[in-house]
Design a protein around this nucleic acid. Sequence first.
RNA 1: GGUCCCAUCGUCUAGUGGUUAGGACAACAGGUUUUCAUCCUGUAAACAGGGGUUCAAUUCCCCUUGGGACUACCA
Length: 495
Amino acid sequence: MIRTRFAPSPTGYLHVGGLRTALYCYLFAKKNKGQFILRIEDTDQARFVEGAMENLINTLHWVGLEYDEGPNPDGTQKGNHGPYIQSQRNEIYTKYAQELIEKGHAYRCFCTKERLDEMRELQTQRKEAPMYDRKCLNLSQNEIRELIENGTPFVVRQKMPYKLIKFKDQIRGNVQFDGKIVDDQVLVKSDGFPTYHLANVVDDHTMEITHVIRGEEWLPSTPKHIALYEAFGWETPEFAHLPLLLNPDKTKLSKRQGDVAVEDYINKGYSKEAIINFVALLGWHPGGGENQEIYSLQELENIFSIEKVHKTGAVFNIEKLDWFNWQWRKKTYEEETENDPEKKLKALTEYTKNHLNESFTQDKEVLNKALLIVEEKILKDPKEINENIHFFFDLPNYDQELLTHEKMGVDLKQAQASLEACRAALENQEHWSEESIKEALLKKVEELGVKNGQLLWPLRAALTGVQFSPGAFEAAYVLGKKESLNRINSALAKL
RNA sequence: GGUCCCAUCGUCUAGUGGUUAGGACAACAGGUUUUCAUCCUGUAAACAGGGGUUCAAUUCCCCUUGGGACUACCA
């Protein structure tokens, strides 16, 4: 049984890089009929953030990555390898640290921070790799007992075997490190909490994790972990180190250069489908010359493979995310509404409800028509709804220049003639629909022997009073006969 | 500095010991449309460099260069 885990540190929110790691862990597990576990790595008490874990879980839930085992937001936990929150597992770590000391694979270190800093500085000056000098490894049992009895603070350090450590990474292939320059890592801090290295290895083993899938930044500490598995006499899991997500300048994706929290993107209106789709393809591709780019989570679960994960970091490019978002919104909108105006209206109302200027909701009749007219722009960006429809409710003050269009051959004189013709055509309309308006106006175009734009540009401008807007037919239809004629008349008054 | 990882259009990527090196985003140019948007068509754009191996390397190997990660009692 394949078991993967996502093990974030709850520092406030879910990072998009974390999301991708979680996604790949999830996909790999699903693809192989395995299990996906969530574990919270909160051993750093200094970095405790209230509500961070709940937030993380909620975001994971929102994007649809359900885990088989792990903590729930309500404080309960599911699965029988728990607890899944490291701060609740301290006795376990203490026990294993003790075992390591007894076996001679770890030792207590009483060195002060000052001594360590000084040593590091000297080593750096001498251009050596900064490493602990193992001063405390040589303490006698009596000295140790005395120091403990005196209440001297201490940490537990891993005694690295100074040997070559090799392993096969699922993504990178054979990797090896010269153990002689791997530092004696702190395993238990002076506050009694374990560091990542100890907690991680103990948990992955006790939770029966078979595949450790994590970010590339962990590659250099993997030899420490392997040494730990060996010291315990445990079987090492498979490792897969994922390429990094990058800023446009190719450094590791960071807050400084844009939003990194998944919730930022949620708040901006990106759909979970778009976010998952985008992130999935940042560092992975199904291969085989496949050109498809739109994938649902379900599809990804079926085709994901760890061998196809790339080695190179990928720049997080928001423009592409925008495109995915547009594709997915169109797709879901079409599927949901089945081209039924009632359903469309309902969906559009839902999309815009949090962004709409309240005064617009007074006139439901106009609003409903307007929403359908600008559906495409709503799908593009629901936040801009007010800019797209405000003129339906309140004709902006505009300059007479707006009624003209040089390129289209509309000067002031032509504008006046066109508007008068439009007025004449619309005055006689008994039936007020988009189709009938279109028909009447196009007939007028033919009569006058002008180009469409020459008649319609001034009309559209008169009806909307803005540079960019829906077309003249649609605008007239939404406004209704009376208001349309009013606006045409006030435009004529400007000329 | 040390250790490790990496290298195809600006970006995400496909691909192969022999290809016109393919697609997408972005850019640009046309077209449709009454404007914007949408939509359609097209253009430009890449195998980092140098050595090998080979009949033949973008592809395999080595070096260089470049980029990145790590180098905490943070994860």
